[in-house]
Design a protein around this nucleic acid. Structure first.
Lengths: 182, 182
DNA sequence: GTCTATATACAGATAGAC
DNA sequence: GTCTATCTGTATATAGAC
């Protein structure tokens, strides 16, 4: 946990980058090692198996998400606005970790699906007191899921059909308005 | 196109079933053949490669989606309500095809991502005239994306955290209300 | 049109040098 | 702690019998 070796982080960054850019099929041990600038043997010194590597990625995502949840609680605009807004921060560590973990989940990795569902439940707990009812809660969560899903769908390059800047502001405003508590 | 051989359909059903239940990693030619009740050789008579099989799945999804779009146009409740509602029809052919194609897209299959984006654009064209502005359009599409994403995340069994019945009615009502055109 | 048997390729993992 | 070389398992695809 505390002060993880730099090489491990470098490998996890490489793993995420390949998952995000090229998908799970391309994320072989050899490709990850190459991207991280080490050999396959060197990689396997830090992570004894592919499964261990996957587990480390999932753990990193969970840590970042829990930190995000703590931050959102303190946001001045209110958790709903902050939550929707952070769902579209392409390139930020948490966003990358979630997108990568989603790709992993879709290949059949149960630990990845479980972790994503767990984090989603925590977000739900955070948002629930700030919306009027269950339908409103579902709406907020589903918009966030949709933003992540679209992020995950964009393999290769960046742009995609996601709302940005003024467009995102309008979406956030609409979601907040439609779900605000009594 | 017209009246495809039964064996091909049976194989595609098997492919979808494995993608949905166990993820892309488990969807090997051998597993697909077994699920379809044929041998690997028999499967390869109908689909000359894994790539051909993937292309056929994507084509089937596109056909079903275009038919769905045609139906939605005629729905009495209005396209927005019908669109959100059909996004959660677990077990229906279109829903299965989209979920399966999503799993494929996450492994790095570019044709799958492109097809999904193309269908999403068509849905956007259908919904746009019925909502008040761009933010509203994004909201409707993102809720639908979120519903599919959650479907895709539930590997193994059915339930999941998706809204059902009365809960779904309330969500649909909220989305329609929040996005209705002037 | 469907099968079995086999060829080829490559991913994950091990062994041991440096 | 990182490397190269190699082993093993498994996935796709081919060949050819039935």
């Amino acid at each position: 946990m505390s002060r993880p070796p730099l090489a491990r982080e470098k490998v996890l960054d490489a793993y995420e980058a390949i998952l995000i850019a090229d998908g799970a099929r391309a994320a072989t041990m050899e490709a990850i090692a190459r991207e991280a600038g080490v050999s396959k043997g060197g990689l396997l010194y830090h992570f004894e198996s592919k499964e261990a590597l996957e587990a480390a990625l999932i753990a990193r995502m969970t840590d970042l998400a829990l930190a995000d949840i703590a931050e959102l609680s303190a946001d001045a605009d209110g958790p709903v606005a902050a939550f929707v807004r952070t769902s579209v921060m392409t390139g930020h560590p948490l966003d990358r970790a979630i997108t990568a973990t989603s790709k992993l989940a879709q290949t059949g990795n149960v630990a990845a699906s479980d972790a994503l569902r767990g984090i989603r439940d925590r977000w739900a707990d955070l948002v629930r007191p700030h919306v009027r009812d269950d339908a409103a809660l579902q709406l907020v969560l589903l918009v966030s899921d949709g933003l992540y899903f679209n992020n995950a769908l964009v393999t290769g390059v960046l742009p995609g059909p996601l709302p940005r800047d003024a467009e995102l502001d309008a979406l956030v405003e609409l979601v907040v308005e439609a779900t605000r508590g009594a």
